[in-house]
Design a protein around this nucleic acid. Structure first.
Lengths: 115, 115
DNA sequence: CTTGACCCTCACAGCGCTGTCAGACCTTAC
DNA sequence: GTAAGGTCTGACAGCGCTGTGAGGGTCAAG
């Protein structure tokens, strides 16, 4: 399928689909005239990228994760990197939450002192 | 005092001090030769900017907040905007934490499914 | 064969900082 | 007077996306 259709199906903008490719996350075939030609597998890949991105992952990180994901369908293939990356990501998120919580405390303190 | 000294005293880089000025958060005097000349009040302002920034605020937001802060010393002067802005900021942080928590849940789910 | 919808590549812009570099002047002290 | 160190302005770069626009092919239907 062409890029417009894939975009409609996945809800990912055409711009972003091309960007994924530039970042090495997708490698669609090309027609003679140069049009990108995506298969069903690519569609699934895009869905996963979207999902992982929605979980706050960088494309760079997703890229590292994709080899563990591309193979079979319903769940993830547990390759060596997988657990490691996921664990790192959770740690990263925890840090961010921690930072935000501290900020929240500070601001809430200010707010309380203004009462 | 000159910018270098202020930088040393506050721990804010020279670059950032100039940036604050460009954003309208500081307005130091100038010597005849064009050097910035900061007073004690400015130093205190920089400390506050740093603190509020550390609490996750945008310079833009801090700028709106400063008029409520500049006047007296130990705490904040409760001007009309103050409560409103602080409340907004706390709300913003809560949203971000919420988003991150959702991401965390998703990733933790993946991680669990890999076990 | 023309029109419209789609596709291509390349590149600029913006978010909110922050570092760094270039080219040039000022100040202090020897 | 010279040298070192501080300051000035201006501008480019990077983070990780994302939209938008220009300029130009492609494909299908009428």
């Amino acid at each position: 399928m062409k890029i417009g259709e894939l975009s409609r199906r996945t809800g990912v903008s055409v711009r972003m689909l091309r960007y994924y490719e530039g970042e090495g996350l997708l490698a669609p075939l090309r027609t003679n005239s140069g049009y990108r030609d995506y298969g069903t597998a690519e569609e699934e890949t895009v869905r996963r990228i979207k999902m992982l991105g929605g979980a706050g992952m960088t494309l760079e990180t997703i890229k590292r994760l994709l080899p563990c994901v591309r193979n079979n369908d319903p769940a993830f293939t547990p390759c060596n990197e997988l657990r490691k990356i996921l664990t790192q990501q959770v740690g990263l998120i925890d840090e961010r939450i921690e930072t935000l919580s501290e900020s929240r405390t500070i601001l809430a303190g200010f707010l309380a002192s203004v009462n």
